[in-house]
Each structure stands twice: as C-alpha cells, then as structure tokens.
Design a protein around this nucleic acid. Structure first.
Lengths: 348, 348
DNA sequence: TCTGGCACTCGGTAGAATCGAGTGCTAACA
DNA sequence: TGTTAGCACTCGATTCTACCGAGTGCCAGA
C-alpha cells in the first residue's frame, strides 16, 4: 500500500502505542469534529496508561507531523499526514449488511443505457455514504463499432452517428465547405458503415484517397470520429449529491470553492486520474493537486472491464470523512458496477 | 403584466410617493442586504420630504404587506409582495454594452451539437449575471425523424437509434423475450426507417399487425419511441454556476436545500414550467411552488422556435437579486438562443 | 518509564454596559 | 390636512469583563 506523504519524511512505522493513540485521535475527531484531548484518548483507547503518558506521546506525534494543535491548551487534531497514516493502516471493513443489500438490489434491478446506470450509481453511492459522489465513465475507444451513418441535416451539414458495441451512441457534426447531394450522403453513409463496422476507434482504417464528394465525406467523417475519440471528451462525469458538500463544511466559502471545482468536469476527471495514478485509493487534503481541496479527501475506486480501466467511482468529503465506511462502499460499488458493465458487455 | 400576489389583497396601484419609497427600499436592500431606514430613503430617493413623512408612509406600506420589520427599531425589508410590486413596475432596462457584446460574440461563434450549445449557454448566463442559471431544452416532439435504425447488441437486446431534424439523436434499449436473428434485425431496421422517415413523434404511424419476429420488432420499436417521447424525459436540463448558490446565501443550510433542489431535474423543469404558466417572468419567494425556495427568486424566459416553446432559460438567485439586470440578461440570451436555434433549424 | 500533581494557557461563554440606528408618537406649523 | 421637528424609547449589535474549564507542559516521585 502506498504511503506517499508518510514516506517523504522518512519516518518508519509508528510504534504500537503511538499508532493506537493516533488512531484514537483520528477516530474521535472524525466523529466529533472537535480537537481531541489526552484524557479522552486515555479512556477510550484501551491502552491502560494515564493521560499524562498519552500527552507525552502526543507531543512526539505532533513533532513528527501527525497531529497539530489549533492553539495552546486545546486538544490535538490530525494533520493530513496523520489521516494518511490512519488510512494506510486501516483494517479492512465491509459495508453494513443493509447497505450491502441496497447495493445488490440496485444492480439486480438497474436497467437501461449505460449513462443512466452510471448516473444512478452516482446517486446510489451518494445516498449510501452521505458524501458527494463522482462517477467517471471512460471513453469507448476499445468498443467496436456496430454502426456508422451519415445523416443529411443540410447541404453543408451532416451528422455522423455511430453506435458502439458497449451500447454507446455518439454524434458529431460534419460541416463541409462543398455541397453534398442527398444521394452522395447516402452513398457515403453506406461506405462509411462498411468501412467502420467491426473496427474500434483505435484501429487504423483505410480511407479512400479519391477526391470526389463521396470519398471526401467518408474521409472527413472517419477523421472526425478518430480525432475526437482519444480526447478526454469521451469521458462522462456524473456528480451525485452535490448538495452534501454543504453538509460537509460549515464555511460557505469552502462550499463555494468545492462546488466550483465540481462544475469543471475536466478538472474532476484529472483529479480522479491523479488519485488512480498515485497507487493509493485516497487523496487527503493537500495531496490533492488542487489547492481549494485542501480540506477535502477524495476516495477513488477504479471500474474495470476485463482488467481494462473503464472508469472510476469516487467520493468527495471533508478530510475528516468516515474513511472506513466510505472506502468500503466505494470499493463494493465499483466492483459491482464493473461486474454489471461486464455482463452488459458480454452479451454482445 | 401579471400581479398575482398583489392582486390577492385587492390593493390597487400604490400612489406615486409610496411607490417611490417602496422602490427605494427594495433597491437599497438588494444592494446592501440590510434593513433600510427612513432617513436613507429620504435622502436617496429624491422626494423632498422628511424622514418622518417617509416613516408614516412606511407604516402604511407595512400594513399593506409590502414591507416588514425584522424587529422593532430596525429598518424595513421588502416582503415577497413588495418585490413583486417592484418587479411588475420595473422600467425596462437593457444589459450593459460589454455584456451585450459578450452575448453576441458567444452566439456568433458557438457551434456544435444543440446539447453543447445549451450547456455553454447556461455557463454564459451564469457568468454574465453571477447567478445560478438553468437552461431547459424541451423534447423534440415536433422535429421530424430523419433516420431510425435498430442495432443488434445481443439476441434479446436491440438499440433503437433515431436521428431528428433538429439534430437530436436518441437511443432506447429494446429488450425482447424472443430471439431475433441478425437478419431479422436488419430487416426490421430497414422497415422501421421507411416507416418513420419524415414523421414526427406526434404522428400516428401505421404499424404492421403481423406476428412474425420482424413485425414484432418494428411494432415494439415504434411503441417504445412513442411511449418515451411525450414524457418530460425528453427535457434536458443544464445547470450553470451552481457554486454561485453559495454566494447568494450565507446560511449553509439554505445552500444545501437549494442545491438539493437543483439536483432533481424533474423538479427544476416543473418549477420553470410553473413560472412560464404563471404569465409572469419571475417567481418570487413563496410564489415558488416549493417551500425550500422561499428565499429564492426564479427568473424565466422562454425559448421559442417558430413561435413554439422550445425550452427556457432561467436564473435562480436570492429574493434580493438584481432583477433589472438579471431579467434583461435572461431575456436577451433567450432571444438570441431562440434565433440561434431557429437558424440551425432552418438549414434543414 | 510511567504517573499524579500542579501551575498555566487560552478559547468560549455569560453578563453588564454601552452604543446607535431606527422607530412611533406628539405637538406645532404651513 | 398633510408635513415636520423633537423626543423618548426599543432592541440588536458591540464591547468589555470576569470566569470557567478543558487541556496542556513540566516536574518530582514511584
């Protein structure tokens, strides 16, 4: 398991007692949102030592950057590094059985287009956890093309409609500076279909080199499709429960900043991708590449089809979020979603 | 112009001085978010009377429900009825020239699919006004069908892909409890295309009554398309600048509630529709059918193509929003958008 | 190495005093 | 009759103080 921040200071594992204390502080702070004092740690965590002992350990933990004091004579609060240690040493937890049922129930009955499933999944995840959820559906560059056609909207404006084996349908406008007759378009559409059928967006396709209208249409349509394909443009982002941002923070300004981020799909995609690349399942506070997320944690679980990344599900909450439950929920949902999409895929 | 609330108490127009005072109170309160006192009205509004006179008028305005006092010995605040009067008697204002340029600029250069245009329009509107914007694109029930095809995803799962004259592309999954061979699907697709070409979703279509697989496929596909069409399902909603909700209110709880509403597309559509139906351009506070919007105002301007409602643009802000500017912006954008869509449409 | 004891810090809360914006009322005035 | 100046009054907001207590750091003793 990655321990990015912890490793930067070269610190090894904490000894058992420090670890227990850190865990107690994190747990209680997540629960109460208040600084945690030595005495409550001494009583709650079942190490039979006095508050004074806990205190001296806390001093050490603060020195090493795991804890911080809002001000003298207040309790301790975990730092990002403290949360990081906590998360990295989290005992695996499974989601509650009622939630488990809710998830199975959902995937057993959900039906319809992939987009709808992804959107509903994002709502599900948000309702399960009470955090804002993010579902990213990656492009369909691996899917094969089942159908491609050109539809004549206008003498200079055709619509390229493609259907993919994963059930996706895309449309792209093709504007030409020459005029194509309806019959040209029909013929181009026929050729295009024959040409692209069974290929994927990653395939090389032999386009006609002739210069007549039909050939030009075909050439431009293929180029259009292949040009747009590999960009992030293909990524679909679904945000669920954005109103929960307002539950997670109590400063209106923080809420505004976080919402502003969620509005930018590209940014969200890249944040999620960063977490996936980091090798960890969570980005905590300043680990997020984006400053306004300093008080947020982003949990991400990949969605795969046949071992291929097909997207990701994520949860965005405050750094003091309930990592154990949220991680478990994200993981379970991503697994089930992967399985669900695979099943859809295999039908082809 | 409608004066829904005002008319409920049977009150006629206010006399000139009361109107001036009310306007002054509303204007200042919108600006400062503070209760407005008699003296500042006396100096700012250019009726040459003393604060005492203003005061006695304010008493009357409060009695009639246009103003309210947060507590004794505070200034006055407009009620929803007060805002309503203000809005109904608003002098027409045009948007600033720099904004006007921004809007023309936008519509001169925007290109691509309708959905993209609508989404970008919503961003534009939000940036122009600093309020959260709503753009609703209505269904394409009037548009004629340019193409319809069935694509075989699976023995029991076909995808119905339709292309409309307005450039819209829809897809619907068709699950059958019988098995259709690829050639059946191809044939059904051919028939379907011939059958639907040139019709609109409102047209009656003569479906084959035979019971063979192909006919069944055709019949079910037509039914599927026509069943889904007239529902609100066809409405597309684009929210722009949802983070600005957090700017408009300072209670996190209010922000949460409003965001929660914006998450429900159907609700948003119906709210917008309500305003359109009301005959006014704005729903203020409790005029909104939905209680959590009691502190919000919703401005709506219809988008039309050929006199037909094709959607709407809206702005959601606090009741103390800048009505004049926001109304002007919404109106101008809706006009330009209508023109833009019409141009797209006429090309067909 | 741990612990109990203790002085100390400092944010939060409660209460009192004060301030002042704004009101309502009244009596006089045009 | 409508308008105005004057004035007492109200009440939220602000400031100040005192004080409480949770929590700390340190130290001496077990």
């Amino acid at each position: 398991m990655a321990r990015r921040v912890a490793s930067t200071t070269g610190s090894a594992d904490l000894d058992a007692r420090k670890a227990t204390i850190l865990e107690a502080v994190v747990t209680e702070h997540i629960d109460t949102a208040q600084p945690v004092g030595s005495s409550s740690v001494a009583t709650n965590a079942d190490l039979s030592v006095s508050p004074a002992t806990v205190r001296s350990e806390m001093v050490a933990l603060e020195r090493d950057g795991y804890l911080a004091q809002p001000h003298t004579s207040a309790g301790r609060v975990p730092t990002d590094k403290g949360y990081r240690y906590f998360v990295d040493h989290l005992s695996e937890a499974s989601v509650g059985s009622s939630q488990q049922r809710q998830i199975s129930e959902f995937f057993a009955h959900v039906r319809g287009e992939v987009e709808d499933v992804l959107e509903q999944t994002s709502t599900l995840l948000s309702e399960l956890t009470n955090y804002t959820s993010v579902v990213v559906g990656s492009g369909h560059s691996r899917a094969t093309i089942l159908s491609a056609q050109l539809v004549n909207l206008d003498a200079n404006h055709q619509l390229l409609v493609s259907v993919f084996s994963d059930g996706a349908v895309t449309k792209h406008s093709l504007f030409t500076n020459y005029t194509a007759s309806p019959s040209d378009v029909t013929e181009a559409s026929r050729q295009l279909h024959a040409l692209l059928l069974g290929t994927s967006l990653e395939s090389r396709v032999q386009v006609p080199s002739r210069t007549d209208t039909v050939a030009s249409l075909v050439r431009e349509a293929v180029a259009l499709l292949h040009a747009v394909a590999p960009t992030v443009d293909g990524e679909q982002v679904f945000i669920g429960g954005s109103s929960r941002v307002a539950e997670a923070f109590d400063g209106v300004e923080t809420v505004r900043k976080v919402l502003a981020i969620l509005e930018q799909e590209l940014l969200v995609v890249s944040l999620v991708q960063d977490v996936l690349d980091s090798g960890s399942a969570v980005a905590i506070g300043s680990e997020n590449a984006y400053e306004p997320l300093a008080s947020c944690a982003l949990i991400v679980a990949p969605v795969t089809i046949d071992g291929q990344r097909a997207g990701a599900v994520g949860l965005l909450g405050p750094t003091r979020m309930k990592y154990r439950e949220a991680l478990a929920a994200a993981q379970l949902v991503s697994e089930q979603l992967s399985r669900h999409l695979l099943r859809e895929d295999e039908r082809v």
